[in-house]
C-alpha cells in the first residue's frame, strides 16, 4: 500500500488535472448542451434539424472517435483551440494557457460529446414542466424566447438537475479517456504509468494503484451521486 505515500504527489497532481478537466468540460457541456436544446425546440426547422442531428450524431458514436476527430481534426482546421486561453481563467487553470493544446482539445472533445446528453436531460426537464405553464405564458402574450427564458427554462432546469447531475458524473468518468489520447498527467495516464511503464524504472503493484486511482474518481463521483439521491428523495417527499 505504500505506493500511495511514496507516490502521493503523482496521484495528487493526477487528481487535480482530472478535476480541472472535468470542471471545465462540465461548464462547456452545459453551455453547448443548453444551446443545442434550444435549437432542438426552436420553431425554425433548419435549427431544429441541426439540434436533432447533433444529438443523434454524438449519442451514437464512441467518445474515442470524438477525441480523434478533435485531436486530428482541429489542427487540420488550423486551430489549436487558442480561444480557450481565456484571460483570468488561465491563471486558475494553468494548463489552459499552456501551448500544449491537448488539455484544451480534451475539454472540447468531452464538452461536445457530453452536450448531446445535457440536451436530452434538459429536454426531459422541459417535458416535466406542465404544459399549462407554457400555455398560460403564451396566452398573456409572451413570445417564444420570453416564454423559454422566463417561464419554461427556469422550471426545466430545476426538474433537470438530477438527470443533469448523472450526465456530469458520467462525464467525469469519461474524462479518463483523455489520458489515453495525448493528455499527459491525468489520473488514468498516471495509473497506467505507475503500473506498467514505471516511474524512474520502478513499477508498482497493481491493486494499490488501482485503489488509489479509483479513490481519485470516487472522491468526485460518490458525493455528487449522494447529493443527487438526496435531491430526488426530497422532491419525492414534497410531491406526496
Amino acid at each position: 500500500m505504500n505506493v500511495l505515500w511514496e507516490q502521493f504527489p503523482v496521484f495528487r497532481d493526477g487528481f487535480l488535472l482530472t478535476f480541472q478537466l472535468s470542471f471545465l468540460s462540465a461548464i462547456g457541456a452545459l453551455l453547448v448542451g443548453t444551446l443545442v436544446a434550444v435549437l432542438r425546440i426552436s420553431p425554425v426547422p433548419p435549427l431544429r434539424w441541426l439540434g436533432t442531428s447533433y444529438v443523434n450524431l454524438f449519442r451514437n458514436i464512441p467518445l474515442t472517435a470524438v477525441f480523434v476527430f478533435v485531436v486530428v481534426g482541429l489542427p487540420l482546421l488550423g486551430s489549436s483551440a487558442d480561444f480557450l486561453k481565456i484571460p483570468g481563467l488561465d491563471q486558475i487553470f494553468t494548463r489552459l494557457g499552456i501551448d500544449l493544446p491537448y488539455f484544451r482539445f480534451s475539454i472540447i472533445a468531452l464538452s461536445l460529446y457530453t452536450a448531446a446528453f445535457v440536451c436530452e436531460a434538459l429536454r426531459s426537464g422541459i417535458n416535466a414542466v406542465p404544459s399549462g405553464q407554457a400555455e398560460a405564458a403564451r396566452s398573456i402574450g409572451l413570445t417564444f424566447t420570453q416564454n423559454l427564458r422566463f417561464i419554461v427554462l427556469p422550471q426545466a432546469w430545476r426538474a433537470a438537475i438530477v438527470p443533469l447531475g448523472s450526465v456530469i458524473i458520467a462525464m467525469i468518468k469519461n474524462s479518463a479517456i483523455a489520458g489515453f489520447m495525448g493528455l499527459y498527467g491525468d489520473l488514468s495516464s498516471r495509473g497506467q504509468e505507475l503500473v506498467s511503464a514505471g516511474v524512474n524504472g520502478v513499477t508498482y503493484p497493481l491493486i494499490p494503484v488501482f485503489i488509489a486511482i479509483s479513490l481519485g474518481f470516487l472522491i468526485m463521483t460518490v458525493p455528487l451521486g449522494l447529493l443527487l439521491d438526496r435531491i430526488e428523495k426530497n422532491r419525492m417527499v414534497k410531491a406526496r
Partner: peptide, 13 residues
C-alpha cells in the same frame, strides 16, 4: 513534463 511532453499510442500520431 506537463507542458512539454505528449504521449500517444503510436508514432504516426
Amino acid at each position: 513534463e506537463a507542458t512539454q511532453l505528449v504521449l500517444f499510442g503510436g508514432y504516426a500520431e
